[in-house]
Design a protein around this nucleic acid. Structure first.
Length: 556
RNA sequence: UGGGGUGUCGCCAAGUGGUAAGGCAACGGGUUUUGAUCCCGUCAUUCGUAGGUUCGAGUCCUACCACCUCAGCCA
């Protein structure tokens, strides 16, 4: 896997290039600023690739900063998981991990600065009253009756808020801006609220916590962030972001830029919905291979490179669209095709007895792990009795089944000899239970002497040497392209067959597979040894994604 | 209905006044010890709509339409 830097030419990259060309900046600094209140998903992957990618592309750096201003919803568990996900994706942040809470002292000082300037005040309105005073989208708000308190009174009250003298919700510090602004964010936004909560980083030092709006821009300024990139829904917050920067003695003037968040079809990415899937037991957890979380996709067998490629493919714009899951699947297949070693696994076994072989025939054949890469070879045992997939034998030849084994029709056993079916047995229900075949001599690595070439190639395993493995066959989680945009409940569109567990026969070499190693089980799909459950002696593989299939074939 | 934003092929997306890139998907064909991969080919006289400016408009102007987004002491 080469660590090439994808050159992005999106609108943000152009802005950065201009800023570099004009001398506005000599070095750029970006940041990825998650709140540690949940697991990262594919949408975050886009943001991570953008922020870290931009920094790398322009020779700058990118910080990882936890926006931890709402302690009750956050935890160390999420912090650890997020750090792991970012690293797994292949990115390294500059210096130590940062926390907005590192800046609480500075933020508090600056709040006092605003109070002294007459630009912030302590408001006694309850949350409900504040909502009424705020007005609506079409009507201006009304000034809070506490808006004109003196600087001295505000200073005193704010200090007493900090000391814990008031109950939660009893008071809040607000910026004094404009209650008639058409932008709701400018209608005297809350800067500090009382929360008598333990914080995962600052413990019990504070009982007042700054809001996102009051924290984000100043944190960017402190860290010297030059380009603060976020999603479109924060666009309306930009005037407020700028207001704080303009009215505070901050050490830098960061600028915010917004891009459109990722929407993927057949997928939900809202934290609320993902949590519901976990809580309702629809999936086994946040890292269930069907989840669009980074840890879920990792366990599914997606690779960091494939996710990075996908993010490059979809681009970065300000328009909000819906990306087809096929694009992600393409990125995954491409990377796996190029890099995953090949192996053979038979999912629905049908015994084939090669009658012109001795009962104790055992031949260790060499099979290359990859057709292009120099990944070496493994030994596969070839014996008189083998298994092929039930779907690869047909009782009667037809053009559609020309690549199948049928009586009188030859096929090549992958990495092995050519055989020809001679006879077969059926059970009471009419299912084929056994096939008898003849091996065509001298066809290892060459065509039959009679020049009648086999039309098809079939994968197989030795019946006496193959091992059993659990295969977890994953399909899409939803039956609707936009499960969260229908009239009904998105849970109504959960695919009941998104997981099927089957037992397959795999070639012995697979027992040595390390957890998280990717394979292509030839003619079946890409599989990964499960990160947690795959153990020596009890192999467990997850279906990452099937191979592309011929249209006609898949309809049969 | 007030503010902000977006509209280029089924999907994503270049395009910055000079005559519509690319990728995904789809569809043909070739190679192949994976019906995979790979290769070759097809796929927007037209850019939300209607006017206007210009020798020339996806790009400029005007109006309209559609969709997204904002009324947490969440981020």
């Amino acid at each position: 896997m080469t660590d090439s830097i994808a050159i992005n030419n999106n609108f943000i990259a152009k802005i950065i290039q201009d800023d570099l060309d004009s001398g506005k900046h000599t070095k750029i600094v970006t940041r990825f600023p998650p709140e540690p209140n949940g697991y990262l998903h594919v949408g975050h992957a886009k943001s991570i690739c953008l922020n870290f990618g931009l920094a790398k592309q322009f020779g700058g750096v990118c910080n990882l900063r936890f926006d931890d201003t709402n302690p009750e919803k956050e935890s160390q568990e999420y912090i650890d998981a997020i750090k792991e996900d970012v690293n797994w994706l292949g990115f390294e942040w500059e210096g130590d991990v940062r926390y907005a809470s590192d800046y609480f002292d500075q933020l508090h000082e600056w709040a006092i600065h605003l109070i002294k300037e007459g630009k912030a005040y302590v408001c006694d309105l309850s949350a409900e009253e504040a909502r009424e005073y705020r007005g609506t989208l079409t009507e201006p708000g009304k000034n809070s009756p506490y808006r004109d308190r003196s600087v001295e009174e505000n200073l005193d009250l704010f200090e007493r808020m900090r000391l814990g003298e008031f109950d939660e919700g009893a008071k809040a510090l607000r910026a004094k801006i404009d209650m008639a602004s058409p932008n709701m964010n400018m209608r005297d936004p809350i800067m500090y609220r009382i929360r008598k909560a333990h914080h995962h980083q600052t413990a019990d030092k504070w009982c007042i916590y700054p809001t996102y709006d009051y924290t984000h821009g100043q944190s960017d300024a402190i860290e010297g962030i030059t380009h603060s990139v976020c999603t479109l829904e924060f666009e309306d917050h930009k005037p407020l972001y700028d207001w704080f920067i303009d009215n505070l003695p901050v050490p830098a003037q960061p600028k915010q830029y917004e891009f459109g968040r990722l929407n993927l079809d057949y997928t939900v990415t809202s934290k609320r919905r993902l949590k519901l899937l976990v809580d309702e037991g629809v999936v086994s957890g946040w890292n269930d291979p069907r989840m669009p979380t980074i840890s879920g996709m990792r366990r599914r067998g997606f690779t960091p490179a494939s996710l990075r490629t996908f993010c490059d493919m979809i681009g970065v714009t300000r328009s909000d669209g819906m990306v087809e899951i096929a694009m992600l699947e393409h990125a995954v297949r491409t990377d796996l095709n190029n890099n995953a070693p090949r192996a053979m696994a038979v999912i629905n076994p049908l015994k084939v007895i090669i009658e012109n072989l001795d009962d104790d025939h055992l031949e260790m054949l060499d099979a290359a792990y990859h057709h292009e890469l120099e990944l070496g070879t493994r030994k596969i045992p070839f014996t008189k009795e083998i298994y092929i997939d039930q779907a690869d034998f047909k009782e009667e030849y037809s053009k559609k089944f020309k690549k199948k084994l049928t009586p009188g029709n030859r096929i090549r056993l992958r990495n092995s000899y050519v055989i020809e079916a001679t006879d077969y047995e059926k059970d009471a229900e009419g299912n084929v239970t056994l096939v008898r075949a003849q091996l065509i001599e001298d066809t290892l690595g060459k065509n039959p002497a009679d020049d009648i070439k086999p039309k098809g190639v079939v994968h197989w395993v030795s019946a006496s040497h193959a091992k059993q493995a659990e295969l977890r066959m994953y399909g899409r989680l939803f039956t609707h392209a936009s499960p969260d945009k229908t009239d009904g409940d998105f849970m109504d569109y959960v695919n009941p067959d998104s997981l099927q567990v089957v037992t397959a026969w795999v070639e012995p070499a697979l027992l040595d597979a390390a957890p998280e190693s990717n394979f292509q089980f030839e003619r079946e799909g890409y599989f990964v040894a499960d990160r947690y459950d795959h153990k020596p002696g009890s192999p467990v593989f997850n279906l990452t994604i099937g191979l592309r299939e011929d249209k006609e074939l898949s309809q049969g």
